[in-house]
């Protein structure tokens, strides 16, 4: 058994190492696979803030993932066709600059998370799960029935968006961008967890009434956490869209929400690196089991079922010391 902090360093180094080895051996597919794991991990880190720290079981995080994706899709498609997004009252044009797209994705998804949170947090427990699931589904149907941006077919973007000073079409450079963002966000989340806000948020999960009596408002704490959580997942959505150079309503689907949740469970709930380990494991399983059988979801289901029933705490819970935080 090793300490969790040490385990986290190993995980980060392993991911970086895999990409670098793949780069040296000239295996672009492996780099892309690692990049995918990194981006999905980022989405999971977002959800983990709400789910692990805040105890908010959101089954609608695909909404933010999809919004981030469509922020990229809409802006880049307008840049691609040289048509303005909006002419009146003021001119908005498309763009293919990554930082601008990320900013838009973060703003859009945090606004959406704020509104969904405002409504959903009026409820708790099992209602909250159903309501977030329903709002996610609402955006899914909206994206299907709105014909301007591809409707059911989605949107293809032919060239990956640009980042100043880097060639984003080179897999290892794009990996670098995603990995750097993941590390920055994880650092931010770990600071947040140990800040007064994070402590109060954890308190609100364990005993909302008690937090209330010391003069804090659990609703506001949870709403703030949900909003930040949505923003992170939205950013991951924008990166994911850029990785595939394609967005479609699938990003909004409830399966996506379920998968993001699976990352957290496979890794370990409320663990800083839980989603990272989980996403990496998921990609490994997808690749390995997917190669064995077309029906690999059966095996994934069985593994997930066993983890939930018998191995609570996920992989990190099994390998590292420190008790899992109570949910």
């Amino acid at each position: 058994m090793i300490s969790e902090r040490f385990f986290n360093y190993i995980v980060a180094l392993l991911i970086l190492g895999t990409a670098l080895v793949a780069w040296v051996m000239d295996e672009p597919f492996l780099i892309t696979l690692t990049t995918k794991a990194v981006i999905l991990a980022l989405a999971g880190v977002g959800l983990n803030l709400a789910l692990g720290q805040g105890g908010l079981i959101s089954l609608g995080h695909a909404a933010f993932f999809g919004l981030g994706g469509y922020a990229m899709g809409v802006l880049a498609s307008h840049a691609q066709t040289f048509t303005p997004l909006m002419e009146a009252p003021f001119l908005i044009v498309g763009t293919n600059s990554m930082p601008v797209i990320w900013l838009v994705a973060i703003v859009a998804s945090s606004l959406c998370a704020f509104v969904i949170g405002l409504l959903s947090l009026r409820t708790s427990g099992v209602y909250f799960i159903m309501v977030t699931l329903a709002f996610g589904q609402m955006l899914y149907y909206f994206s299907i029935s709105w014909p301007a941006y591809g409707g059911e077919d989605g949107l293809s973007i032919y060239v990956r968006n640009s980042f100043p000073g880097l060639n984003t079409l080179d897999p290892i450079q794009f990996f670098g961008i995603c990995f750097a963002i993941l590390m920055l966000v994880i650092y931010g989340v770990s600071r947040l967890t140990h800040s007064p806000f994070g402590l109060a948020l954890n308190g609100a999960r364990q005993n909302a009434q008690r937090v209330h009596t010391v003069g804090l408002n659990p609703f506001k704490l949870q709403l703030a956490a949900f909003t930040i959580s949505g923003a992170i997942t939205g950013l991951a959505g924008a990166l994911f869209a850029d990785l595939n150079r394609f967005v479609s309503p699938t990003m909004f689907s409830w399966q996506t929400s379920g998968e993001i949740m699976i990352f957290i469970i496979l890794g370990g709930v409320a663990r800083l690196y839980g989603p990272v380990v989980g996403a990496a494991l998921f990609i490994l399983l997808e690749h390995w089991l997917g190669g064995l059988s077309d029906f690999w979801h059966v095996y994934l289901g069985i593994i997930l079922l066993c983890v939930v029933l018998f191995a609570r705490g996920g992989l990190i819970g099994a390998l590292a010391k420190k008790e899992r935080a109570h949910v």
């Binding site: 789910l51 699976i262 059966v298 994934l300 289901g301 997930l304 079922l305």
Partner: peptide, 28 residues
């Protein structure tokens, strides 16, 4: 039966796993 005493998160995940198993088995 094993899920009645668990929290909602475990129930969601275990039944989500059941969906995966059922859907793919039916497809198969």
């Amino acid at each position: 039966r094993r899920l009645y005493d668990r929290d909602h998160l475990d129930q969601v995940l275990a039944t989500f796993a059941l969906i995966l198993i059922f859907s793919e088995t039916t497809r198969w």
